[in-house]
Write a protein that binds this DNA or RNA. Structure first.
Lengths: 185, 185
DNA sequence: AAGGTGAGTTCCCTGAAGAAACTCGTCAGT
DNA sequence: ACTGACGAGTTTCTTCAGGGAACTCACCTT
């Protein structure tokens, strides 16, 4: 794929996508988080090429999303565990799952249910506003340039666009710093 | 990549990933949802190969996530718009963005802020339980086999695993503490 | 007529994904 | 001691998708 260096794009989605935007990574994380943690189990479960699995796991360990641990010495056996950073991907997976269920749901129902132990019911994930708890949609929210924004690959067109929107909207909370709308480095 | 047919895997994450688990698709959807909707703008903004962009857009239109519309006739010009199915991916993008901000955040701050128009504040997305509104984590939720579940590629190991958990848990009304201590505080 | 813009196509080249076989260390059974 | 199996990768070989850049085509502007 000649991995494009998305990591340096000034967009958190791009950085997350650089890691996560690979068909296998999401599925590997699903499996690890749910409890399939050994190499062979992952290979069999996913039907992934062992070579690619080894590469993905190495990358995920490298990124601090998984750790590789020896869980028994006698026949030396390793397994992969999610770090805090890895566990934090769980909500993203729930979002993907919810979307898949909604738009590709089979008549029989979803293949997997999520059981919320705290409230004791089957549940689904909704992405809501941290402040008021209202579900966030394209229609009730706006992207505005943040303090760490800069123009570069990945935001050449988008950057100026949201900057001009911010201007039109005038001071939303704290006004935008840069007058030229291109938050400089 | 020799696109593996993930679509028939009995897992909604796999189905969503089949579409979304491509480095470019997430970024294209971000751009389209935020307002970059024309071919050339997308190509310039993302720095994506035009060939690949054409292929991705065709696929997204095919999947019913985007529509291609002529917005002016004189010089014939088209643009891409998100359908309801496409807009529904927005929460997933917010999840990715939140994760990227949390774990790859620059000292300067996030490159983009999300302005919630309803409550009038900068916000972040949290994935919460539809019933009680508590944030969902690996520790307070469990995957259980759903009505549409079946064993196949992508669930050869995982399927039996969650099935056995469901058995151990017995009637899911009684909160059972996992013997292996997986369920954390 | 010359140049520009939007929206793609076509071309070639490299390198990542897939498949399957191979390695290496350690048990378990006979 | 010999054979087989398992876990965890590594190696080899082939093929096909991605990157890059040039090319097309229709229309507009000067």
């Amino acid at each position: 794929m000649t991995r494009k260096p998305l990591a340096d794009v000034a967009c958190s989605i791009a950085r997350a996508t650089d890691l996560f935007g690979d068909a296998w990574t999401a599925l590997i994380m699903r499996d690890v988080l749910v409890g399939v943690t050994r190499f062979d189990d992952l290979a069999h479960d996913l039907g992934i090429s062992r070579k690619v699995l080894a590469a993905r796991l190495a990358r995920l360990v490298d990124e601090g999303v998984l750790t590789r641990e020896r869980y028994q010495d006698h026949p030396p056996r390793e397994h992969y565990q999610a770090t805090a950073k890895g566990e934090d991907l769980y909500p993203v997976l729930l979002g993907l799952m919810a979307w898949g269920d909604r738009w590709y749901g089979e008549p029989a129902g979803p293949p997997t249910r999520i059981w919320h132990t705290t409230c004791g019911r089957d549940t689904n994930a909704v992405a809501v506003c941290t402040h008021c708890g209202e579900p966030l949609t394209v229609h009730n929210s706006d992207q505005l340039p943040g303090p760490g924004g800069r123009v570069g690959p990945g935001t050449r067109v988008l950057g100026p666009l949201i900057a001009s929107r911010a201007e039109r909207r005038q001071s939303p909370g704290t006004a935008v710093a840069d007058p030229d709308g291109q938050t400089a480095p």
